[in-house]
Design a protein around this nucleic acid. Structure first.
Lengths: 337, 337
DNA sequence: GACCGATCCTAAAACGATTTAGTTCACCAC
DNA sequence: GTGGTGAACTAAATCGTTTTAGGATCGGTC
């Protein structure tokens, strides 16, 4: 409603003085009090856009989820969404920044223009990007060429030096492989996500490595899309192919689908078949039996992502950093006994 | 990188002309072409902040979730989060707006200052608010006094004329009551959310009304917090109190917990006890048996919320509007057969 | 009385766009 | 030659802040 100029005028000083007074700079104490009182009285709130323009800083960062139109729902099924946001929001809030939220498909014809805007339109101080699929993301060159602050969650592309925070998917999957091996399971299957999905690739790699080093050779892998539905149908395919000790699902939703198939087809979990999921989604506690899974503390990860980006913005460092190690959450679905 | 002034200079015209040319206003065609070519050549992207300042429009709206510190997790457990965002983002994107995301607890001591900023700092054209609990929200007066565009999802407070889009919780709960009545269930329980939660209150009211008009008198109600865990424990309490035909849970997560308790204590769902949830969360398909539930098409609702707010911003109307009617999604958990 | 220094304040420029109110110029009619 | 008309462009103001460079005032010192 009221501007700095008005406050200054009413307080009987210049706009410059008013600004100095309000921002805690060197001003005669009596004057400062007068200005502050006037500002309070006029209900003065600084115009943030005026500030932005002058400072060439927007105090805003963006969180961008990259999807494909084929897998639009994947965002919420990889459990990233809420936890990540919660972590990011905590940091952003504390540092007086704002968070913009965007979801873009990489098939979007306006994508190039969008990234040009991100880099040049000065409405963003930096960006956190969550890619889903392994492919070439052309924006990386753009960001680096313009020294635009960005951090990726998971490196979506290899070879280019990118700023990222990652979850150690392969290590997480290894935990499951070790678990299965230690329990003596031999006939093992995996229900994975889409073949080009970053997490899917890494989880399969880690799982295979873990099994191999434990001397387990037999592995059937089917590819779903992280949805409950494909967990169900892929479990059906696997069951048809022969007897089974254990299934590792690349996320908890598919694990729920798999368990559903197993119980509806008369097999008991974990007595007949052991099932382990991934992500430590809330639903793990609601499934019967409670789902054993792998946790990456995504909220903590969101915090790191935000902190790293803000550090980058403030020129405090160039970040290349690994994330928190995974941990196995043992519940009731993995032990055949 | 380059500014309008630079483009104008290179193209040999004034900044005014360059602006007119770029914005499709009346300019000699040859001049326009020259300006456009220069702009492209210099990779010109308008500074959005400069525009904002001049236009007194930020082309940004905010989505604010109100929580309480006691029930911080409730945001993701009421299934609102992702679906709502998806719907809102669709509209916002299409209209070239940006979406800011915020979560605030109503115990936050800085809340009053926050709302003063929202109204006065000119960085927001409007706001969508998602309150959770029935209480007095002081910001409403502030918004109305300053004619600041806002829309609430669900009216959090009664008596004041507010702009809102609502889901018909009571009607949804009635569908469940009718279903139970039509199947002849007599001994019925409800596991509800927190007593002061907007949805919880309405769902209980509708459920009670529905049962009453069907002549079913017997109802036990327990209050949880929308989490799986309390669905489980409340189901335990209810089971201890006597035999039962059916349970209505105020959301799908608690229904999952309830089913879990029932199966772990040797009761079969739906053979022994029928269970119905609420929200049509993804997990309904993953539970055994598949969960019958009530759907409000929240994505569609998100779209409406955004559209109404934008209409309000553009001065096209004063909105007071009911949302989409609920529909029952019949799966496998409700019929005792 | 001239000079110095300290303190306090302000005029003005700057950030980058849009828009208003003209100005300039060519052309035509009388 | 005068005046009118219209097309094409531009100077300057504006949005609201921050910051720089310097001006005013006063007291003290030699």
């Amino acid at each position: 409603m009221s501007t700095l100029k008005e406050v200054a005028h009413v307080a009987g000083v210049s706009a410059a003085t008013a600004s100095l007074a309000l921002n805690g700079r060197k001003v005669n104490e009596a004057t400062r009090q007068r200005v502050l009182r006037t500002a309070r009285h006029l209900n003065y709130v600084p115009n943030r856009v005026g500030r932005m323009l002058k400072a060439s800083k927007s105090q805003t960062i963006s969180l961008l989820f990259m999807t494909s139109s084929r897998h639009a729902d994947i965002v919420r099924h990889t459990a990233l969404f809420y936890y990540l946001i919660e972590g990011i929001l905590g940091v952003v809030d504390e540092c007086k920044y704002s968070l913009r939220l965007e979801v873009k498909s990489h098939e979007d014809p306006g994508l190039a223009a969008y990234f040009e805007n991100v880099v040049h339109d000065k409405s963003l101080d930096g960006i956190i990007i969550v890619p889903q699929f392994v492919r070439h993301y052309p924006f990386l060159e753009l960001f680096q060429a313009n020294r635009f602050p960005y951090v990726m969650f998971r490196p979506g592309r290899f070879g280019l030096e990118t700023n990222y925070v990652d979850i150690e998917n392969a290590a997480g999957a290894r935990l499951v492989a070790d678990l299965f091996a230690s329990l003596g399971y031999q006939r093992i299957a995996m229900i994975n996500g889409p073949e080009s999905h970053v997490d899917a690739i890494e989880r399969e790699r880690g799982f295979r490595e873990g099994l191999a080093s434990a001397g387990v050779a037999d592995l059937v892998v089917k590819y779903g899309d992280f949805m409950i539905h494909t967990g169900f149908s892929m479990m059906g395919e696997i069951a048809r192919e022969g007897p089974l000790d254990a299934v590792f699902c690349a996320n908890d939703y598919m694990a729920a689908g798999a368990i559903k198939f197993l119980s509806e087809s008369g097999r008991r979990v974990p007595h007949d078949v052991a099932v382990v999921g991934y992500d430590n989604n809330d639903i793990c506690e609601g499934i019967v039996p409670s789902l054993t899974t792998v946790d990456h503390r995504l909220e903590e990860l969101g915090r790191m992502l935000a902190q790293e980006l803000l550090a980058l913005i403030n020129g405090q460092r160039t970040v290349i950093q690994k994330g928190i190690p995974p941990r196995l959450i043992e519940r009731d679905s993995h032990r055949k006994s």
